[in-house]
Amino acid sequence: MGPLSRNKRLSEAKKDMLSGYLYISPFFIIFAIVGLYPALFSIYLAFQRWNGLGAMEFVGLNNFKIILFDPLFWKSLYNTIIIGLLGTAPQIVVGIILAFLLNITFLKFKNFFRVTIFMPYITSMVAVALIFSVLFSNHETALANYVMGLFGFDPVNWASSEWGTKIAISIMVFWRWVGYNTIIYLAGLQSISQEYYEAATIDGANKLQQLLYITIPLLRPFIVLTVFFATVGALQLFAEPTVFLGNSAFTRDEAMTVVMYLYRDAFTLQSFGTASATAIILLIIITIFSAINVFFTSGFRRRRVR
């Protein structure tokens, strides 16, 4: 093979590589415009004082100090964690139970139940707001107060009380996302080979033992995935409290979340510097919670292996 043919082959390889990069370049160009650049600009803006119109003023870490010494920020973080726990922890457990029920072989109308359970996830937030504003109205005849009255409890001012607001929003989060987790768990259950259960039955294992030693361990990657998504989603909670409280969402602190605090700083107070600093702090908090989840999951796996 002569030098000319070798150079020709190298040039063709370069052309193929260049054409490959050109095919995938639209994704990276769009990501750089709508993802990477805003993220980098937000980091830069966190150290500036800017109202969105005038000149920027470098203030160093002053924006972070303002946020960390603001009681409303810590209140919003507290609200975010409480609503997140109340709204996401039950949906993990209930999602697994519903997935088991939908995976029963003799269950009829499976497709109907699957679509029904998944429907809240694709429902418009406007419709969700209307439904829950009626269900959790402050009026005594509202459905939530009526059901509580049947058990002898007094009516609750859901949209104005501290815990009433948190519980109503948590139920909204649970109602909207439990079907999403159920479908993921159902896919995980259907990926488990029946040969494991047949072998366990031959060895004399009962249904509870099969659940503890076959189903749950093989379903663990799906559980870890949903817990991770639920944790990140809970810390970014914005739509549900906003649509439930309406116009008063940003003037009351009983349901103010971190993202709502960020939004208020940016678009109500025109303080884009502190809003960007809040976004960075939220990113750090999400990273910490995600690392905790990975740590406990990895530790549990190591203990199981030993």
Results as ranks from 00 to 15, higher is better:
Phe289Trp: 13
Asp265Val: 14
Phe113Met: 05
Ala266His: 04
Ala13Pro: 09
Met1Ala: 11
Ile214Ser: 05
Val126Tyr: 00
Ala266Gly: 09
Tyr261Glu: 07
Ile167Pro: 14
Ser193Gly: 15
Arg304Leu: 09
Val34Asp: 04
Ile288Asp: 10
Met56Ile: 10
Met172Asn: 11
Ile285Glu: 08
Phe238Cys: 05
Ser161His: 01
Ile97Trp: 03
Gly299Ile: 14
Tyr78Pro: 11
Leu212Gln: 01
Glu162His: 15
Ser42Trp: 05
Val227Tyr: 02
Ala142His: 05
Leu269Ser: 13
Arg49Ile: 08
Arg114Phe: 09
Val34Ile: 07
Asn181Gly: 10
Gly52Asp: 08
Leu45Ala: 04
Met56Asn: 12
Gly233Trp: 00
Lys14Asn: 13
Glu254Thr: 01
Arg176Ser: 15
Ile83His: 00
Lys75Gly: 06
Tyr213Arg: 14
Leu40Tyr: 13
Asp253Gly: 09
Gln91His: 03
Tyr185Phe: 13
Trp175Asp: 05
Tyr146Ile: 06
Leu61Glu: 10
Thr165Cys: 10
Trp74Asn: 04
Gly273Ile: 07
Pro38Cys: 01
Thr242Leu: 01
Leu102Ile: 02
Ala13Arg: 14
Val93Ala: 02
Val115Ser: 11
Leu18Val: 11
Ser76Pro: 08
Leu235Tyr: 07
Arg301Glu: 14
Ile183Lys: 08
Thr257Ala: 01
Asn181Arg: 09
Pro120Lys: 04
Tyr261Val: 02
Ala255Phe: 04
Pro90Glu: 00
Thr287Asp: 14
Gly35Asp: 03
Phe222Ile: 10
Arg6Asp: 12
Lys65Arg: 12
Leu61Gly: 09
Phe64Glu: 00
Ile67Tyr: 08
Leu4Thr: 12
Gly84Trp: 06
Ala187Arg: 13
Ala239Gln: 08
Phe295Trp: 15
Gly204Asp: 04
Met17Ser: 14
Val227Ile: 09
Leu107Phe: 01
Thr274Ser: 15
Asn103Arg: 04
Phe112Lys: 01
Asp154Tyr: 09
Arg220Asp: 15
Ala127Phe: 15
Gln194Ser: 11
Tyr21Glu: 10
Thr105Ile: 03
Ile202Leu: 11
Pro26Gln: 00
Thr251Cys: 07
Pro38Ser: 01
Thr123Phe: 01
Asn247Leu: 13
Ala205Ile: 02
Ile292Gly: 15
Phe267Met: 04
Ser191Pro: 06
Phe73Asn: 05
Val94Gln: 06
Phe41His: 15
Leu18Asp: 14
Asn103Thr: 05
Ile29Val: 03
Leu107Val: 06
Tyr180Val: 07
Ile122Val: 11
Gln209Thr: 03
Thr201His: 14
Leu18Trp: 13
Gln236Lys: 02
Thr251Asp: 12
Met256Gln: 02
Gly233Ser: 02
Asn7Gln: 12
Leu53Asn: 11
Leu135Ser: 00
Gly299Met: 14
Ile97Phe: 02
His139Ala: 14
Gly60Gln: 06
Gly84Met: 06
Thr278Val: 08
Gly54Tyr: 13
Phe295Pro: 13
Thr201Pro: 10
Val59Gly: 00
Phe100Val: 06
Leu262Val: 02
Pro241His: 03
Tyr196Ala: 04
Ser76Phe: 08
Thr105Arg: 05
Gly60Ile: 08
Ser160Gly: 12
Asn157Gln: 04
Ser271Gly: 12
Gly87Asn: 02
